[in-house]
């Protein structure tokens, strides 16, 4: 088990945001957490990263409680935030090189170029400063970075936000291939169809509670069932 939330309760500013959710993500698996705004999706990711201590329950990364060794948990995870806020005074390549160095890694320029090729960021763009990038280009850069981290676990917060449809398809294929190489991927998203396309399992979050899980069977996840469940979660209660 790469990631495990066990009866996880988390409060922010005195208000309970997660109310006893339990799920797990294995190696070779893409797990998508679906839910509306305020469902607790990002809070779940931040808990795995050691930013929000549970008020009850536990979060485990590679069988170890995150809060017993936060640095070790973070080392095992490549995290892609919802808003890929890269340094605007650096180019895509420089941003990636810097973040890799922060993680104690280094990558050659060809390796960075190869990762940027995979996310289809044009060679001209990658040598320009990020300040002039569109949101999609920034997201592609951050995805390339997450892949280069080569960690056992990827946490992705709304990873396809800002990407064009072609790039979204490419991204899902990339994520699939990353998981197939033995990594565990946990992503939170609003994108029902994308989640169904890329994920092995989908967890439906509503009001900090896991309302249901959908697993791929035969030809994949039943998109219609997920869509209905998702619609139910975003209807104001």
């Amino acid at each position: 088990m790469m990631l495990q939330a066990d009866s996880l309760h988390v409060a922010r500013s005195g208000k309970e945001v997660l109310s006893g959710i339990s799920f797990s993500v294995d190696a070779y698996e893409v797990y998508a957490l679906l839910g509306g705004n305020g469902a607790g999706k990002s809070t779940t990711l931040l808990s795995f990263l050691g930013f929000l201590s549970p008020t009850a329950g536990s979060v485990l990364v590679k069988h170890t409680d995150v809060y017993s060794d936060i640095a070790a948990a973070r080392k095992a995870i490549a995290y892609l935030p919802e808003s890929a806020s890269l340094y605007e005074h650096l180019t895509a390549q420089e941003n990636i090189a810097y973040f890799l160095q922060l993680a104690g890694m280094s990558a050659s320029s060809p390796a960075i170029d190869a990762a940027l090729d995979r996310v289809a960021l044009s060679p001209n763009a990658r040598r320009r400063k990020v300040g002039g990038y569109s949101k999609g280009m920034r997201q592609k850069t951050a995805i390339a970075l997450a892949m280069l981290r080569d960690t056992d676990i990827l946490l992705l917060d709304e990873p396809t936000s800002g990407l064009d449809p072609n790039a979204i398809d490419e991204f899902h294929q990339t994520i699939r291939s990353v998981a197939d190489s033995g990594k565990a991927v946990l992503m939170v998203t609003h994108d029902v169809y994308g989640a169904c396309h890329a994920a092995d399992k989908i967890g439906m979050l509503q009001g900090g509670k896991l309302k249901g899980e959908f697993a791929a069977e035969g030809h994949g996840i039943d998109i219609e069932a997920v869509r209905k469940a998702f619609s139910a979660t975003v209807v104001p209660s």
Partner: peptide
């Protein structure tokens, strides 16, 4: 403000 703080901390470990 730039939305990088947690990303940086999650990346850097220490």
């Amino acid at each position: 403000i730039a939305g990088r703080h947690d990303w940086l901390e999650a990346t850097v470990g220490q």
